[in-house]
Design a protein around this nucleic acid. Structure first.
Lengths: 197, 197
DNA sequence: GGGTTAAACGGACCACAGTCCGCTTATATT
DNA sequence: AATATAAGCGGACTGTGGTCCGTTTAACCC
């Protein structure tokens, strides 16, 4: 029985070489391990290459830059979180009323963002997460707003609701504005209430 | 007639040396000129030092890091903008009704932020502006919300209104979400309307 | 299996941010 | 004016991100 991945699909002509796949996975693993062993800031590209047993050039070939590598690591965590939104238990996952889902989304998203602040910063894009991740959350919020019967420019309103959940903003609130999690949760819920009113 | 700065004030014992002052100004000027001549990304610390006619160590002594230098340059522009808010002509400056002032504030702030995106990014702090600058705008928005009779956690609501005006968010909206300035202005105004309702 | 080719590899090399420490000089004191 | 002192200065040095190009090798075809 053949592995299903050996079946070439039309429209995807350039298959990735086996050693390339192996190296990419080894590099992602090495990076995660080094981050866990110390912190993101202390992880150098040379160290990642050495730990993965490849040359430095290979790291840059695969991920383009340090930011690209960190983005790849971040996307991995992000995928797990997205799975909880798409198919996890309510109220974050499907099954709960839209308003409950939206509030659970905000709480969960803010926690996850702060938890990954250092990685998000290292991933660059001026502090945002990858565009794929952003469009997923924007789509989700927009969908929930529509479910709630909100009128207006839902595209803008979704990004406006997401903006206070950005790492930059949360960090400022927690570190310099003296806000605690209770006020942040309550404040965001109030924002939702005013927008959906 | 003596220069007023020659009068030493009690409580500020360590006067800054004259050559230090001169060098700081020369460095800020050199940095601005180099930014104008090319772009922020291409300005190296060596080039700044050379143009200012000082050693590289001096640049780091005065500004601590590249981010510190860029922050200093940014703060200079920011101060001019703040002056327009505090004492410029209405509706941005004082004299107009609070709602008009708030809407003018949002428009102006968003334009200024996008205009300085590259510098803001180079100034770091994970993409935010300096804390002094942030607390000024937060204070101002909070004050206008109070004038408008808004109830609730004004501290949080102010940061929530400011969040969609962050460089990271605006860049995402303009570059990837396909929003134009008309939608951004209208969307933010709608957000204000829903919050102040 | 042997040959062909294009992708992948690796490590020497470069540029730039940031540090260090011996030298210089502005300022205060007498 | 001479001296003392501490702040300021500068450029050689280090560490890390990123590039380049000659070499290796996986994948495909016969």
């Amino acid at each position: 029985m053949e592995s299903p991945h050996l079946l070439p699909l039309v429209g995807e002509p350039p298959r990735e070489r086996a050693d390339a796949v192996r190296n990419r996975e080894a590099l992602l693993l090495a990076t995660s391990e080094l981050i866990d062993a110390s912190c993101v800031e202390n992880v150098t590209m040379d160290a990642v290459a050495q730990r993965a047993g490849v040359g430095k050039g290979t790291v840059f070939r695969r991920f383009g830059s340090r930011e690209g590598l960190m983005t790849a690591v971040l996307d991995h965590s992000e995928a797990q979180w997205q799975a909880a939104v798409i198919g996890g238990p309510p109220p974050l996952g499907p099954g709960a009323p839209p308003l409950d889902r939206l509030l659970a989304f905000g709480r969960s998203r803010a926690r996850a963002t702060v938890h990954h602040t250092a990685l998000i910063r290292a991933a660059g894009h001026a502090g945002t997460r990858s565009y794929a991740a952003m469009s997923f959350v924007a789509m989700h919020v927009r969908y929930l707003l529509a479910e709630l019967g909100v009128e207006g420019d839902l595209g803008y309103l979704a990004t406006a609701l997401l903006a206070p959940l950005e790492a930059v903003v949360l960090e400022q609130q927690l570190t310099h504005d003296g806000l605690d999690w209770d006020r942040i949760d309550a404040g965001w819920a109030d924002l939702v209430a005013r927008i959906t009113r």
